[in-house]
Deep mutational scan, measured.
Amino acid sequence: MDGTRTSLDIEEYSDTEVQKNQVLTLEEWQDKWVNGKTAFHQEQGHQLLKKHLDTFLKGKSGLRVFFPLCGKAVEMKWFADRGHSVVGVEISELGIQEFFTEQNLSYSEEPITEIPGTKVFKSSSGNISLYCCSIFDLPRTNIGKFDMIWDRGALVAINPGDRKCYADTMFSLLGKKFQYLLCVLSYDPTKHPGPPFYVPHAEIERLFGKICNIRCLEKVDAFEERHKSWGIDCLFEKLYLLTEK
């Protein structure tokens, strides 16, 4: 054995408090879109979701699917093309516009009456609605409950000090017999300040354990050449399924 860690023996890093005071403002996230600093976007979609999607959907149609901090995630069109209703929230209007443009979807925009100064973008087909606002303002819009949440790049982007508020927001959107698919990253948080932030299993239990059954479905090596600039040499991604207790 050469000592290389595999996707099945990932350790939890003990120094989980080192990132707790890290803060990125909404304006800084918007600047990332304006300046093209969106390496977190996956042009081909998320491979773990693609692998498990049909198993999760079980042939159902007409589900309501929520994408927190959606950006221009191509997976939104995957669900819409399968007959589901997609709702996303994203602070960057540019990111939302790029989604519709890159997916060749016509759309309209209208003000969100409950949140002055914000807009919702709706596909002409009517099954994709993307709200351009802070996720913490979203419950004011009465958008209803969801059958499924796809959380990739959301919890790991939320400032650590806001995670409890974020989890409570997610709980307010969950319908009966929900499936909450959650991706988190595992790396040494003493070497990279984030975002994306390190979210250990214990944190998921703390945030969601009282209401959800929590199961880790898969762990994969997600390290890429660009991650060397973070000062790390190891990065794993974990896919969790959260269901109603």
Rank of each mutant, 00 (worst) to 15 (best):
E218C: 14
F171R: 11
L239P: 03
A80C: 12
G36T: 12
Q103D: 05
F178V: 02
E203R: 02
E114L: 07
L130V: 13
S134Y: 03
K210P: 14
T38S: 10
L69H: 08
K245E: 11
I128V: 12
C70T: 02
K60G: 07
P189V: 07
L105V: 12
C212R: 02
G71V: 04
V220G: 09
L217K: 13
Q42K: 14
Y13G: 09
H201A: 12
Y180S: 00
C183Q: 03
L138S: 03
C234V: 15
S123E: 13
F56R: 10
K50W: 07
A157C: 08
N21L: 13
F121W: 05
H84P: 01
I158Y: 04
F66H: 02
N104G: 11
T16V: 08
V18T: 10
L49S: 07
Y13F: 15
V89S: 06
V87W: 04
A167Y: 04
D137W: 02
W150S: 01
D2S: 08
H41N: 07
T38C: 09
E110G: 07
P193T: 14
R82G: 07
V23S: 12
F146K: 01
N21D: 13
Q103G: 09
T141R: 08
P116A: 06
A73G: 07
D9W: 05
C216R: 11
W29K: 02
V184N: 04
S124G: 13
T190V: 12
L174A: 08
I91W: 11
Q97H: 12
K238W: 11
A80D: 04
K176A: 12
L239N: 04
S129K: 14
Y131L: 14
S14P: 00
L53W: 12
S14G: 13
M170F: 01
W150C: 15
V86F: 00
A202C: 12
W29Q: 07
S108D: 02
R152K: 12
F178L: 03
A73K: 04
K72V: 02
Q42S: 09
V120E: 02
L235K: 05
I10K: 14
F223R: 06
K37W: 09
L239V: 10
L26R: 07
K37R: 10
G36C: 14
T113W: 12
L63Y: 07
K228Y: 09
K177T: 12
H52W: 08
A167S: 09
F136R: 03
G161S: 05
T6C: 07
S134E: 03
E75S: 05
L26H: 11
G175R: 07
C133I: 12
Q103F: 12
S92L: 02
F99D: 00
V87A: 13
F146V: 05
Q22P: 05
V120Q: 10
G3H: 15
S134M: 03
E218G: 04
Y187V: 03
P116N: 07
L174Q: 00
Q42P: 06
S229E: 08
T4K: 10
L105G: 02
A202T: 12
N142Y: 12
L235Y: 08
S61K: 05
V184Q: 09
K122N: 04
C165K: 04
E90C: 06
E98N: 15
E12K: 02
M148Q: 02
P189S: 10
E12D: 12
E225V: 13
P193C: 15
A222Q: 12
L155M: 12
K164A: 14
L181T: 04
S14E: 07
L48F: 02
N142D: 10
R64F: 01
H84V: 07
D151L: 00
L174P: 00
Q30P: 02
V74P: 07
T25Q: 08
G209E: 08
L105K: 02
Y180L: 05
K60Q: 13
K228R: 14
H41K: 02
R206P: 03
I149E: 00
L69R: 06
C133N: 01
Y107Q: 00
A73V: 01
S61E: 15
G231D: 14
E205K: 03
Y131V: 03
N142W: 08
F208P: 00
N104P: 00
T190A: 09
K219I: 02
I91Q: 10
W29A: 06
G71N: 04
K32E: 10
K32Y: 12
A154L: 05
K119N: 03
F79P: 00
L235S: 11
K145P: 08
L49Y: 06
T118F: 08
F66R: 00
S124D: 13
P195V: 06
G153T: 07
P68K: 00
L173A: 02
V18R: 09
C183W: 05
I232W: 08
E75P: 03
V65H: 00
K122C: 09
D233P: 06
F223M: 08
E11N: 00
G59P: 11
V89T: 07
I232S: 06
S129L: 07
A222S: 11
E110L: 13
G161Q: 14
S129N: 10
E90D: 12
E43R: 11
L242T: 00
K219R: 15
T101K: 15
E17W: 10
L105C: 10
R64D: 04
L182P: 11
P111S: 07
H52I: 12
F171P: 02
L8T: 08
R206K: 15
E102V: 13
N35M: 12
R5T: 12
H52A: 03
H41Q: 05
N35V: 10
D188M: 08
V65G: 01
D15G: 08
L138T: 02
K176L: 14
Q179S: 10
G153V: 05
G126R: 07
I143W: 04
D9S: 05
Y187K: 04
S134N: 12
L49I: 05
V87L: 05
Q103T: 06
Y187E: 04
L49M: 13
I211G: 13
G83V: 00
S108V: 12
K245F: 14
H84C: 08
V86D: 01
H192C: 03
V199Q: 02
D2W: 06
S134P: 07
S186E: 11
W230T: 12
L182M: 10
P139R: 12
L8V: 07
C165A: 07
R215A: 14
K145L: 04
T38R: 10
E224T: 11
E205W: 06
Q44R: 10
V18S: 10
W78T: 04
L24R: 13
N104A: 11
I10G: 09
F79C: 03
E237Y: 03
I214F: 02
R64N: 11
S134T: 08
R64V: 04
G62H: 12
E43A: 12
K245C: 06
T55L: 11
K32W: 11
H192D: 09
C183S: 14
D151T: 00
K228I: 07
A157T: 03
L207D: 04
L173P: 01
E102M: 02
P195A: 05
V18M: 12
N142L: 06
S85F: 12
E203C: 08
P189I: 05
L181S: 03
